[in-house]
């Protein structure tokens, strides 16, 4: 680090720093059947809360696939979602849809030498991504591993200790690896999940039919199904919500870690990284040779989980 980049200052969360990366995604097709639009709008005005079996509103029922939404559609849908959340919980949220940044491909690295199994990442992720506590949904699973073994059968996520790390153990957090050859995307019968240009595998929660084939296909146990209509206490709702990341999910759909794309596509670091007390987590742009992540991949002995499956994860582990 050069002398000119270091400067003593009080800690700043970075929130106040202005940045020019927020950008509304512009649709590439622009074509769309007008009658559906009209029908959706008409249905939306007549939308009710369904008839007790959790039926979707008319707008939701007819909502198109994310990739066919025009900027106008998005504006309309975001307003409807904001209204819906305000009506249900009284919380004013800000729906947004930051676009992938040109030339940026995200990757993650995790230092197993320093991870101490504190699960701070797990809970920070839950708060950031509006994950429910009952029944619990968590994107990150921290495995307590036996030293001398990388075999998951010898590991457990159910450790409950006074202090970690425990003698003779090490800890391996596992979350979505944002594979470049994602078996989950191949499995989806309706293209409700896909890989974005910046490497993040996303789910259109309004398109997913809930068949759970992607859950079956994932070798990293990274996908979660909504077994009930989740409810988050209003004071725990994170109001900054991305359409493809942490917005409210309804029951019957699958969700997953998105590397906090509503944060990372606006330049910030993922919530799990910032919550890590040991600094075990590193994130950045794979295309930038000066990024932390590139330096790790080039200078450390990194490895990926289940390499033999050729899933090409974007999540590297290393001992450093």
């Amino acid at each position: 680090m050069a002398k000119d980049t270091e400067h003593c200052a009080a800690s700043s969360s970075g929130d106040d720093v202005t940045h020019g990366l927020v950008d509304q995604r512009v649709d590439d097709s622009g074509t769309r059947r007008t009658f559906l639009k009209v029908a959706a709008a008409a249905a939306a005005t007549a939308a009710t809360e369904g008839c007790g079996i959790g039926a979707p509103t008319g707008e939701e029922f007819l909502r198109q696939h994310y990739k066919t939404l025009t900027p106008d559609d998005k504006k309309r849908i975001f307003a409807l979602i904001e209204d819906e959340v305000r009506g249900r919980s009284g919380v004013t949220i800000h729906m947004n849809d930051p676009a992938p940044i040109d030339g940026v491909e995200f990757a993650y690295a995790l230092n197993l030498s320093v991870c101490n199994g504190s699960r701070r990442c797990v809970e920070a992720c839950a708060r950031e991504n509006n994950l429910p506590d009952d029944p619990e949904i968590r994107y990150i699973r921290v495995l307590e591993m036996e030293k001398g073994s990388l075999e998951f059968e010898e590991a457990t996520p159910y450790y409950d200790r006074e202090k970690v790390p425990a003698e003779g153990k090490f800890y391996m957090p596992v979350q979505c690896h944002q594979c470049d050859n994602p078996p989950c995307v191949k499995a989806c019968p309706v293209q409700a999940t896909w890989k974005e240009p910046d490497g993040i595998v996303v789910v259109d929660y309004s398109w997913c039919i809930g068949c759970r084939f992607c859950v079956v296909a994932c070798p990293y146990f990274a996908r979660r199904f909504n077994f009930v209509e989740a409810s988050i206490p209003p004071d725990r709702i994170n109001p900054t919500q991305g359409y493809l990341s942490n917005r409210a999910r309804h029951k019957g759909v699958v969700e997953k870690c998105t590397f906090c794309l509503h944060r990372t596509r606006t330049g910030r670091l993922p919530a799990c990284l910032e919550a890590c007390p040991t600094g075990a987590r590193k994130f950045g742009n794979l295309n930038d040779p000066n990024s932390d992540i590139r330096k790790i991949i080039e200078s450390k002995r990194v490895y990926v989980l289940k390499e033999e499956l050729a899933t090409l994860p974007r999540f590297y582990y290393f001992f450093g």
Partner: peptide, 16 residues
């Protein structure tokens, strides 16, 4: 080099 220790903020901007 940013490989050890906790760094927060922006992955391509102001970091603490």
């Amino acid at each position: 080099a940013g490989l050890h220790g906790l760094t927060t903020g922006f992955w391509n901007g102001a970091q603490v």
